[in-house]
Design a protein around this nucleic acid. Structure first.
Lengths: 223, 223
DNA sequence: CTTTATTTTTAGCCTTGTCTAAAATATTTT
DNA sequence: AAAATATTTTAGACAAGGCTAAAAATAAAG
């Protein structure tokens, strides 16, 4: 198992995120993403190409090779497992999780990651609702998360309500929330973990943590 | 809070371990410890001196400054907490723990370490029985660990027996074990977790896990 | 279809941490 | 106390990964 430097891994991960399904990535895009000068990016592209992680012809843009994508999924797996750990076990709030996971993801020990995966109960989604690739790089398709754990200002679609008691439904109805509603969390109040919610362009309103934890959403499918 | 490169941290930690209580460390010793050429060590010593982590005069040897010792304790705290985590939570065997902890210790986030500490229940000793410094760098004085968790071939002193049932004492007496006895674990048999024990130069013998887990030892005090 | 503007690459330099070879200082031996 | 040996430091080089400034290629505009 070849392994890569922290820097190489950061490039690979960034390219993976930028290229999406079938796209090409440009030097400037990657430069902006990594906050690194285009000239430096070009240098690294040459190295990654030499290692066959990249399909790249100068001036023509680039994308990951099959091997490169495999490496990317490994990095993402580590990142998201650590995010899950930080959030679930160490009780980090969702927004503190990323930077630390960014460091932890570069610790290379297959055994560590597989044992961590097991310890966490083989989670398939991280606290942001993003899927965690398994040992073989397979990623599950979207699934729901509670709105108490989603990032701020990201519109998501309600797909499940975990408690159907009449009082609960009363609140939902009052706030115009139902399956299929698209909403975003505007603010989290640390004091009582209540949330400010906004639906479309309507006036935002508050939900207590008691209510919010039963509302589950999924990413909005790209149409 | 200033922070240091992985390389700097490795030097600081190594110096801490080499210098012990009051000793001076030499370039060659450190070079051997780090498997790095003496010339490179000299270079780094100059850098660490410039950062006031070291008391160093050329050709005269060196030791950590007060600040340097504080930094070292921070690194050791991280290392040992991760060892505890790997061993206790991820069920790594004691001998697999070190190399991974070596990488994890360089992840710098005070919050991460303090939350990890809390998650682990503020352990004061790592799986090898070494003390874990607290947030303020305070380290508990030696304490006992069960012989089921100590490293192989390290002589330790029996200081406690966790079960004083007559049958237990019978076995201890038969094997000449009592408080103050110095023994080492020669081998661990994974099948039934029994241990091969040796006292001084005597013939080694076997203890079942049932018995061994009640025998507690501490590091031998340097006299 | 040229000219201009933008993007990308090259060329050369810097820093960190390493190395080897040679010089300087300490230590040991005779 | 001088000579021999061992240790430590200096000097100069190199790889990785970043930067700036200038050149080359591509894309956009007239």
């Amino acid at each position: 198992m070849t392994s890569y430097s922290t820097s190489e891994e950061n490039y690979i991960k960034a390219i993976y995120h930028l290229q999406g399904e079938e796209g090409m990535v440009t030097t400037n895009e990657l430069s902006a993403e990594l906050k690194t000068r285009p000239a430096s990016v070009t240098d690294m592209l040459k190295k990654l190409k030499a290692k066959k992680l990249l399909n790249y012809e100068k001036y023509q843009g680039f994308r990951l090779s099959t091997e490169g994508r495999k490496v990317a999924l490994g990095i993402i797996r580590r990142h998201r497992l650590w995010e899950f750990f930080l959030s679930e076990k160490l009780r980090f709030s969702w927004d503190e999780v990323h930077d630390v996971a960014e460091q932890l993801e570069h610790v290379t020990s297959k055994k560590l990651i597989d044992k961590l995966d097991e310890f966490l109960g083989f989670p398939r989604f991280d606290p942001h609702g993003d899927p965690i690739p398994d040992q073989h790089g397979k990623i599950a398709t979207h699934e729901r998360v509670s709105i108490t754990v989603i990032p701020l200002n990201h519109s998501m679609e309600v797909c499940h309500v975990g408690n159907q008691a009449p009082d609960m439904l009363d609140i939902l109805k009052h706030n115009n929330i139902s399956i299929g509603t698209r909403l975003e969390v505007r603010k989290k109040f640390a004091f009582d973990n209540s949330l400010e919610i906004r639906i479309g362009r309507q006036q935002p309103f508050i939900l207590s943590n008691e209510v919010a934890r039963h509302i589950w959403v999924k990413k909005i499918e790209r149409s």
